[in-house]
Each structure stands twice: as C-alpha cells, then as structure tokens.
C-alpha cells in the first residue's frame, strides 16, 4: 500500500513538473502547431505554384519517388 502511494506521489510530482515546465512555455505551443508529419503518413494536400506561376497540388506527387527540399534565397 505504502509503495502504491509512493508511486502515485512520484507520478503527481512528475506530471506537475512536466506540465508547468514544458507545456506552459508559449514557444512549445507554437512548435506543437507545426508538427513534422510522420514517416508513413500521407503528404499533406496543399495548393502551391510551380515555377511558371501555375497552381500545383501536392496530391499530384504520386507514381514516382519525389524528393522535396525546403529552401529560400537567404
């Protein structure tokens, strides 16, 4: 019984520490909203432009292996 209470207390301490130190940070809330999609998951469907300025749908990226690399001028 005493051991169970000790485990319950440790769990509560861990939960309190975790929630106050990690979830309370605004930066982490931001990161949570921009999660990297999981390997094995489908590529998100988004409408982009191709380099000629024509609409391009990511859902058309099928039938081939495709490499996508994010970048910019700076």
């Amino acid at each position: 019984m005493r051991i169970q209470i000790r485990y319950a207390f440790q769990y509560l301490v861990f939960f309190a520490l975790f929630t106050t130190s990690v979830l309370a940070q605004p930066g982490n809330r931001n990161r949570a909203s921009f999660q990297v999609p999981k390997v094995g998951g489908a590529l998100p469907e988004v409408s982009l432009w191709d380099q000629q300025g024509q609409p391009f749908l990511t859902k058309t990226l099928k039938e081939h292996y495709t490499v996508l690399v994010f970048g910019c001028l700076t």
Partner: peptide, 19 residues
C-alpha cells in the same frame, strides 16, 4: 507549416504519396 515549419527540411515521398 504542414511539413513542420523547419527552414531547410527534406522529405522523400513514395509513389503512393506517403512520406
């Protein structure tokens, strides 16, 4: 945003459209 918001990330998509 949908791909994790990193500045220089890289992905390979298979022919079924899976990452």
């Amino acid at each position: 945003h949908a791909m994790g918001n990193a500045p220089n990330s890289e992905f390979i998509i298979d022919p079924k459209g899976k990452i």
